[in-house]
Nucleic acid binder design. Structure first.
Lengths: 170, 170
DNA sequence: ACGAGATCGTTCGGGCCCAAACTATCAAGG
DNA sequence: CCTTGATAGTTTGGGCCCGAACGATCTCGT
């Protein structure tokens, strides 16, 4: 889905195999490029900013969400970060073991767990995030300045459509 | 990074914690929405089209690449799909165990392994891909028709920039 | 008071994911 | 030949990822 072959080459090859199917190549290109872009951006940010601090992408997202919203319930972190509570549970254990976050049961509702950054965690994010944002800026520079907000909006439209199709909010 | 909070709410919260850092919120929004969109699209396609056939996203991508380019070397599949050869090795074993692909050492270069679909694999893709593309179309419909090609192009720009930044082709 | 149903976080099993180490093979030069 | 270096794919070890099952806790109607 992301490789040396251009869209035109792929289209030719697909037509070669599937002359009779009528396919929407434009939609294929949008979805395919969406994943190419997300993967390459993630790889770049992991290698350039995260790896030196021995952080994975997901661990960083968790730290970021907690940094902004602490104290925060784990269900909120999972929803905000876009992964399952099962995944979050494991990542939180990793981060807790490294002394970057703390877990604490809520006093008012014993089912909830509140997450906070440790002093060390806050110090790490304070050093890390400016570098991260600088790389984000470098990546966004690939898009003409006048198209950036529009791009963010179009991506949000796709996001909403996907969520809507999966779980119809009827 | 992807949740119930809007960009404005996040921006306010960030400013509350970090009044003195000067951050590029536009770049943040582009990157953040890129991942929101990719994740929700992937989740939707997995649940609606792939899960009924007991396929993961990555397994489907592998089948797709092999379907189009077979017989194809594993290094090509990995590059085209955008994952490491280590990952591919595992996924290929899974698919081989389910009788959907075959591995075969090349006669001309004994280091290479050629991958093909089995008859069953081809039958599966023949049934599966039209449904998959129909969902892609439904997703792309979220974008105004006149913006779709531009969107694919902008995503490709981001992709190229990320690859360029990570491994400077100097 | 109390059971029925909802909600929260964890655990478990199986699969994906990558870097690094490893084996096998090829290619080039001596 | 044979050695050196490059390349292909696999294995290994550690971490992420999700659905499903689970125990603990809350809520609400009776």
């Amino acid at each position: 889905m992301a490789g040396p072959h251009t869209l035109a080459e792929t289209e030719a090859a697909v037509n070669d195999r599937l002359a009779d199917m009528d396919l929407d190549f434009e939609a294929m290109a949008v979805v395919s490029n969406l994943f190419r872009a997300a993967n390459s951006v993630r790889n770049h940010l992991e290698r350039s900013v995260l790896q030196p601090h021995d952080l994975t992408w997901t661990a960083f997202v968790v730290l970021w969400v907690v940094w902004i919203w602490e104290p925060v319930e784990t269900r909120t972190v999972a929803a905000e970060g876009g992964f399952s509570k099962a995944t979050l549970s494991g990542v939180l254990s990793t981060l807790e073991g490294r002394g970057l976050v703390t877990r604490e049961r809520s006093e008012t509702d014993r089912r909830l767990v509140l997450v906070r950054l440790t002093k060390r965690g806050r110090r790490l994010m304070g050093r890390l995030f400016p570098d991260f944002n600088a790389e984000e800026r470098a990546l966004a520079d690939a898009i003409p300045e006048h198209s950036r907000l529009q791009t963010a909006d179009l991506l949000r439209l796709i996001c909403q459509r996907a969520s809507g199709l999966t779980s119809p909010t009827t």
